[in-house]
Amino acid sequence: MVEKISETRKSFDEALSKVTNPQSLEELRLKFLSKKGIVNQLFEDFKLTSKEEKKLIGQILNDLKTYTQSKFNEFIQKLEKEYTVKKAASIDLTLPGKQKEIGSKHIITQTLDEIKNIFKGLGFSIYEGPELESDYNNFEALNFPTDHPARDMQDTFFINQNFLLRTHTSPVQIRLMKEKKPPIRAIMPGKVFRNEAVSAKSYCLFHQVEGLYVDTDVTFAELKGTLVAFIKQYFGSEIKYRFRASFFPFTEPSAEMDIWWQPKGKEGRWMEILGCGMVDPNVLINVGIDPEKYVGYAFGMGIERTTMRKYGIDDIRLLFDSDIRFLKQF
């Protein structure tokens, strides 16, 4: 048995030295190292030997197995190395890959996605609603009295006296509050319309995200804290901000939030980023929620201006002109 082992070792060495191509290597593997190869056969023989012999042979047989296996592996590695060098010389690896293009979402959609994700993380649901709305949902229910100058704040496309293109996504808030009981915590992204001449600075439509939270213990301090958390996630934790009092018919107190905007090499300035406030009790009454028991906050922001500033887009029409040279940049 011992002799057989040392012979095997010799004949393995000899065979390995003669290997010249993948076929002869495979032959060698089959002969010595495969399941039915010589080495395994020796192990089969080993099972039949006596206890004393086993003591004697066990070690050297294991050594043989380790030896042949490692020699074989070494050889393969050497061979692969040679092969790679040879092959590389014959293929032009700098040729472009066979690629498929990945399309992209519109930059406004991408911005909306970012904003939606942040608010989802803060426990907000996402609701949508129609773009052709009733005057009631868009204005009356939101505490815009008829014949009040507040209506001039939003240039409106009317279909007739009672129907219009929504000027904000706030009607979704009305629909939601009529349908659900508090707590209501949701954002409403969507397209809105303003009757303005199309120019580099304004377009007849844009996108908005509004938010609403109604519960028994909602406070202005929480509104501030939540919005600060949002802008820090969106613009980075270093962002400078301020809240100043403002007016919206559907909130009271009302505020606008500005951020300090300073593009590289330019003078910085305060820039309005969103409007917010505590839901006016009249709005709650209009949707059948008791304003004494429940308090709400609401906020809303336009997406286009923020997006344009973030990416340095100077003409809003680019967003809606569908130029592939523009779309491919995002």
Binding site: E128, P189, T219, A221, K224, G225
Partner: peptide, 18 residues
Amino acid sequence: IPNVQKISVTLEEKVDQS
């Protein structure tokens, strides 16, 4: 008026219509 530093999560059903 100080900003709150934490908010509680309301556990109503969450919806994402988009």
